[in-house]
Simulated scan of single mutants.
Amino acid sequence: MNKSPDPAIHLGLLEDYIGLHLRMAQEAVLRAFIASSSQPDFKTGRFATLMIIRLNPGLSQIEICRAIGRDKSTISPLITALEKEGLILRESSAKDRRSVTLHLTQAGEDALDVLMPHVERHETRLDVIVGDAKPDLIALLKKLIEALS
């Protein structure tokens, strides 16, 4: 796929839309990761969910949604898939028996360990691309998230 839209295609007002460029950047970053990692089925939500559970065992599904900015309707099928694959466990919450908490299994830990070198290489590549603007870029993205959440 092209690095940027075909210059012969007139984008009109879209050229100045932040949302369009955010989406295109997200897609480009994901395509580059998939190409460099040989992980054709990689999903960003999958990695983020596993990592949040690793770092914060015992969170609820809702807490994970908030942590990674996902909608409840998209996280439920992901959690179900991760559980079916044996990567996570759902356990009754000690605080609220109506709620469940999530924990990685050893297979989940192993899956993250396999992904991490690919993720680190990819993030290093992104760091090189954005250079010294990284803190400003992250600050602007966080500003958008905060203002629109």
Rank of each mutant, 00 (worst) to 15 (best):
M1T: 03
N2P: 01
S4F: 02
L11E: 01
L13A: 14
L14H: 05
L14S: 05
D16F: 15
D16S: 08
Y17W: 15
I18P: 00
I18G: 01
E27G: 02
E27Y: 00
A28V: 02
R31W: 11
I34F: 07
A35M: 02
F42G: 00
R46A: 08
F47I: 10
I52L: 13
I52R: 11
I53C: 07
R54T: 04
R54L: 12
L55M: 15
G58S: 10
S60V: 10
E63A: 14
E63M: 10
C65W: 02
R66V: 11
G69F: 13
R70W: 06
D71M: 00
K72D: 10
K72M: 08
L78V: 13
I79Q: 06
T80M: 14
E83P: 01
E83M: 08
E85G: 11
L89S: 09
S92L: 10
S93C: 10
S93Q: 12
D96Y: 03
R97K: 15
S99G: 00
H103N: 14
T105H: 06
T105L: 05
A107V: 05
A107G: 07
E109M: 10
D110P: 02
D110R: 08
H118L: 03
H118A: 09
R125N: 12
L126Q: 12
V128C: 03
G131D: 10
K134P: 14
P135S: 00
P135L: 01
I138T: 13
I138P: 07
A139F: 07
K142M: 12
L144Q: 11
L144A: 02
L144Y: 14
